[in-house]
Design a protein around this nucleic acid. Structure first.
Lengths: 163, 163
DNA sequence: CTATGTGCAAAACTTTTGCAGTTGG
DNA sequence: CCAACTGCAAAAGTTTTGCACATAG
């Protein structure tokens, strides 16, 4: 979430190379866009941002790349409602999403105890956890003062709930 | 999960009427199919089952109906990977899904402590929980004997992981 | 009786693919 | 050098919609 400077390779680019993926100019650009994105862009948005950095990228390549990265565990696909898949880099720290059903606003939050709990549940069913999604669909409470807890939240305004 | 007999209305039909939705013949059939489904059918599958009960139902109506029911909180949409949305009746008892990434098999499980935890988290972010999804993507562990826990699981074989 | 629902087929969208030409390692 | 990648445009697949007719309340 911090390592990327002009001359250096981005975190995602590094992950690609670790997995022996061929690093074309297009992939490097897309990797950079993804590393710099702290929201949950869909393919069209990724294409827009990538095009701004380098005009010779086609949307087909963006589709092919996100698929490849997802298959390699570098990206995770999300469905927040709204018809298109949205993407986010696989992070070390597990975090989850709360979607405001009124506005489509996405609130990201972490919850330490959860990760271990999920691993335990998975194990008890005879499986090994590969990845997971936790999405809460909720409605803003009118007034109530926010309680203090051990989990942090950060907001992102993006995507309408029903286009 | 138990209330439906020939002459009587299904649970979903009842929910529709409570919300003042007009009950057409087609909706009644679709409501019945949904009430009897204990898996996670996609629209095509719903259309197939509904057609078997009553030939004069179009797939467009199935699409329109699931959308309506979802908007009314009667159905929940799921994305288990595989391109199409899958549906499931909103249940009283919260339950979650584990998807075997190899086979696409879906294991449903419940976890009592979880429901309350999710509600707490939502509240602490200043929201009110409307609905939620928890999906674990996992790989079967080769041998290890299954541990005993407080959550039950039931398996469903359906849908390939990547068509 | 009238607002709402439905069937049909066309349209709209998102995502995938075939092919010929390009390129990374 | 060659297997793998890309652009383009066409194709495939899912979901929505316009319109004329049907129907629940």
């Amino acid at each position: 979430m911090a390592t990327d400077r002009n001359g250096l390779q981005t975190r995602i680019e590094r992950m690609c190379m670790e997995r022996g993926l061929k690093m074309t100019g297009q992939r490097r650009v897309i990797a950079r866009v993804l590393s710099e994105a702290h929201d949950h862009p869909d393919v069209e948005e990724l294409y827009r941002r990538a095009s701004a950095l380098d005009g010779r990228i086609s949307v087909a390549t963006v589709y092919r790349t996100v698929r490849l990265l997802e298959e390699n565990g570098i990206l995770e696909r999300r469905d927040f409602g709204g018809g298109r898949a949205r993407y986010e880099a696989t992070e070390e720290g597990d975090h989850y999403h709360l979607i405001d059903v009124e506005s489509g606003q996405v609130v990201e939050f972490t919850h330490a105890a959860h990760a271990e709990l999920l691993r335990q549940i998975t194990a008890s069913l005879g499986f090994e956890l590969v990845s997971h999604r936790l999405e809460l669909f909720a409605r803003r409470r009118p007034d109530v003062a926010q309680e203090q807890t051990d989990h942090t939240a950060q907001t992102e305004q993006k995507g309408r709930s029903r286009p």
